[in-house]
């Protein structure tokens, strides 16, 4: 098997999930005959990083596309640069970290190449018929087992946290230039700028205790139970994305992949199902408490304590119990 991995970098630094994806690609290589993995690195002014990668990980080669056209990410530039090289080498697998950037262009790349697409893989196993891949479906409530069919290159992305970055094998790889005409890999848009979401951010990263509201709260007019509990605890209020999208709280209170990443001493998640895009932002919390009416909600699997029930009954009782405890 010929396995490639496309590493993601920004400003000359590897994206944290790139190492996890190296670990996954090395695992896939080991499971499919033990060949080496070839890495691809795209960008502008990335020679130092390329050398670091080539000297850091057990890779066959590190194929570098270093060009002003690729200095800022655009789907136009990246797809053109990768298409030519992938079409020429025809790898069986091309592994990506499942990031906002790779999702933005992977499907487009697959379509143009006539390759297959298998996004957000969390594990793979082997059975009599070959490889079976796991990926979350229905907001993480279920895990699907997926098989690949047909011939030709498959593009696969690796979900955050599924492989440990530390298990990426150290070693070295040969530094080479990625095939293709990079001058032709032109950006297909103008980048006007970058801005912070919601302007001035409330900094939730320093909070010791956070009470986080989910869609299960049920409405802006029902947020009182969250406010009361937060007041009793002296906690900050945060939320999952739908709470913000519905306008029940301002955008700077969002926790998750497109919000803030927090690691308080205590995180109380009320009416939050526990989708990966939320949990990446809070899984570093020391103690997690979940209150959810669905005993199968994925949030329970990464919580320390859970109460199964209606948060509109549980939270007021909890507020009372905390006030009682504080009076002692």
């Amino acid at each position: 098997m010929k396995i490639w991995i496309v590493l993601e970098q920004k400003d000359g630094e590897l994206h944290r999930m790139s190492r996890e994806a190296i670990a996954a690609a090395q695992g896939l290589a080991a499971a499919t005959g033990g060949g080496s993995v070839d890495a691809v690195l795209l960008g502008g002014g990335i020679a130092t990083l390329a050398e670091k990668v080539a000297g850091g990980y057990a890779l066959g080669s590190v194929r570098v596309a270093d060009h002003p056209n690729l200095a800022a990410y655009t789907p136009g530039g990246y797809v053109a640069a990768l298409s030519a090289a992938i079409a020429a080498a025809a790898p069986d697998w091309v592994v990506f970290p499942h990031t906002y950037q790779s999702v933005d262009y992977m499907a487009r790349l697959a379509q143009g190449l006539g390759a297959g697409l298998l996004p957000e893989v969390t594990a793979f196993e082997e059975d009599a018929q070959g490889l079976l891949f796991s990926r979350p479906v229905l907001g993480g409530k279920l895990v699907a087992k997926v098989r690949v069919r047909g011939e030709g290159t498959m593009l696969l992305s690796v979900q955050s946290g599924a492989w440990a970055a530390e298990s990426a094998q150290a070693g070295s790889g040969e530094l080479v230039t990625l095939d293709g005409d990079l001058a032709a890999a032109k950006p297909d848009r103008e980048i006007l700028g970058v801005e912070e979401v919601g302007g001035e951010q409330v900094d939730l990263t320093k909070a010791e205790v956070i009470v986080a509201a989910g869609r299960g709260v049920g409405g802006a007019d029902k947020m009182g139970v969250i406010e009361d509990l937060a007041a009793a605890l002296g906690a900050e209020i945060a939320a999952s994305r739908p709470v913000i999208d519905n306008g029940w709280l301002p955008r700077d209170r969002q926790i998750g992949s497109s919000g803030q990443t927090v690691a308080p001493k205590l995180y109380i998640a009320a009416g939050i199902s526990g989708a990966i895009q939320h949990t990446v932002g809070m899984k570093g919390s020391a103690v997690v408490v979940a209150i959810n009416k669905d005993p199968g909600a994925p949030i329970f699997s990464l919580s320390n304590y859970g109460i199964v029930g209606d948060l509109h009954e549980v939270l007021p009782a909890l507020t009372k119990a905390i006030r009682r405890a504080k009076e002692l």
Partner: peptide
Amino acid sequence: EMESGLNEILRI
């Protein structure tokens, strides 16, 4: 939307 609370402004 990009990761970690950033937005990119594009002209397409």
